[in-house]
Nucleic acid binder design. Structure first.
Lengths: 334, 334
DNA sequence: CTGAAAGCGCTTACAG
DNA sequence: CTGAAAGCGCTTACAG
């Protein structure tokens, strides 16, 4: 029913191959032939059937992106950047929401889904390195985020420790001495929580400030998690003069709860986050945070993945890239 | 290189067709045959090649979703809901960002992109009804949003006028008499802006309050647009006791700017929005807004589109569905 | 219940 | 520069 390349070939009086050559911008075609083919394409309203192209060429020109949920602002903003970076290079992005569940992540990295994409960008939250390596098959895979760290896997990383230390140092420089941490528990060493916590600890140590594990609250990394955590902390009677939410959602939830309870921010309690989502700039007061280099992460992850796809596999060394971060000082912690 | 159905067939000692039957859950297969095939699939690690299936069957089991940008919270949250609704019905979603540009929208509704999907969910912002009908081809299409209204097109709508009237009435009931509107200009009649503005006007008229066009500010529907609009309004010396941002982003930007300038919200100026994005609950003060039925919109749009895909075209009447809305009264306008 | 053949619409070698 | 043939990995009629 749809117009095929064969129809175009007949209309233009050339072979199938010539039409294919024109469409794929093959160099050596007589200009008049090209014109005739283009005219036929235009006239018939021909559109390439990408499914057929994929089947024959073995390439889909799609990248998979597995993340927890697009309703989480940091992931949505990252996905937007990734789609744009891919688009510039002639690829589309197929997003898969894992909902943070191991079963979904597993299905996404090994299932039929993979046959639709040439390579995968994966933000793992539930699966470990071993499971990823086992399950991922042979197509290229680049990890984002830092829940998983393994020398065998390509990844683009945030400078978690350094960035968390920088923001903690900023709070300390502002005279804060008792900095609560939302989103981690004492003893966490792995994943974003562990890395950011260790940056926090390092900054305290550098400043000669005592580390007090009773100032840590473990909770979901969402706004309501942050709000609930601050509520519990206040109810416990703990004393603190600053809050470091391990991501912006936590910090924004905490900020909300502090203001609801009549605390003055930043006069009584300073608040800082991590991610620099757009919302942070427009919070009241605006949120001090650290920008982990989202655009750079998107750009480099896409570039690396496509390089893997388009080069001969096997050969290349594992690549682990780090994005530059930047402190964003705003009113919640001047 | 990859394991094919043929490999499975050989390993199980059956024909290709039988393997296909097992995979597609064809009923009448001898249990022992099924077992043998499943065992071979397991052993060889066979995965269906979805590209090949699509080419042959003419179905991709993917829905296209064209929206402006995932970094806009309302679209991100809607996309998340749509992907979940599609997933439940066995479909994936391929998102295309139009960046609000007509050329991108046109490419998305008529380009090769369409060959990858069985149908399209489209939030038009730049194209008109005529262009959509011309360009969209033969595959099913369901519109979301209300920039375009046309009796020939399937769509799922927000009750813009009614919802805008409800929130205006709420502000009036709180004693506000001079309600600024952000995101529309006097005379707008089409699209979300026009519809919401007309709801606002209707509510004023019902309450016998005069409509003052100098209280309208046209701007981009983003946080910084709202902030800039309020700044201009304040600088102009206009008097107002409430602000209605035609979406939450506008209202949140306005809220931020009002607080920066030392205005008390809601004591001096009440603020209300439209969309009920998650961020609204955690703003300080929390944002009064209207929930347009996002989950219902996602669910019904996906259901309608899939119904169109799976039934014989042509026949059915155009369907225009409306989602129910709900007022969310919070602290910015109690 | 299962099989052998055809074909979806392209691109890929291979000729010329 | 262009053509004729083969085939990517499935599902779809059609037989039996």
């Amino acid at each position: 029913m749809a117009v095929t390349m064969n129809d175009v070939a007949k209309a233009a009086g050339v072979s199938l191959k010539t039409v294919s050559n024109v469409i794929n911008n093959y160099e050596f075609i007589r200009p008049t032939t090209r014109q005739r083919v283009l005219a036929a394409i235009e006239e018939l309203g021909y559109e390439t059937n990408l499914t057929a192209r994929s089947l024959r060429s073995g390439k889909t020109n799609m990248l998979g992106l597995v993340l927890a949920d697009l309703s989480i602002p940091y992931y949505a903003e990252l996905a937007s950047d990734i789609m744009k970076a891919a688009w510039r290079r002639g690829y589309r992005v197929l997003v898969e929401q894992s909902g943070n569940e191991a079963a979904h992540e597993k299905a996404a990295i090994q299932g039929q889904f993979r046959s639709l994409t040439d390579g995968l960008l994966f933000i793992p939250l539930a699966l470990g390195a071993e499971e990823i390596i086992q399950g991922a098959g042979t197509k290229p895979l680049v990890l984002l985020g830092e829940y998983v760290q393994d020398p065998r896997l390509d990844m683009v990383l945030i400078q978690n420790q350094e960035a968390a230390a920088a923001i903690t140092t900023h709070l300390l420089a502002g005279g804060r001495r008792r900095i609560a941490v939302l989103g981690a528990a004492d003893g966490d060493t792995t994943g974003s929580a562990g890395l950011r916590l260790s940056g926090y600890k390092a900054a305290l140590a550098d400043a000669g400030v005592e580390y007090d594990p009773t100032l840590l609250v473990r909770c979901e990394w969402r706004r309501d998690g942050g709000a609930g955590a601050i509520a519990r902390l206040l109810d416990s009677g703990a004393e603190f003069d600053a809050v470091f939410g391990l991501n912006d959602a936590l910090a924004l939830g905490a900020l909300h709860e502090l203001l609801v309870r009549g605390k003055k921010v930043p006069q009584e309690i300073a608040v800082a986050g991590f991610d620099d989502i757009e919302e942070a700039r427009f919070a009241s007061p605006s949120l001090t945070t650290v920008a982990p280099g989202r655009a750079e992460i998107a750009e480099r992850a896409v570039a690396l993945l496509i390089e893997r796809i388009e080069s001969d596999r096997e050969t290349a060394d594992v690549r682990q890239l780090e994005a530059a971060f930047e402190l964003r000082v705003r009113h919640s912690a001047p």
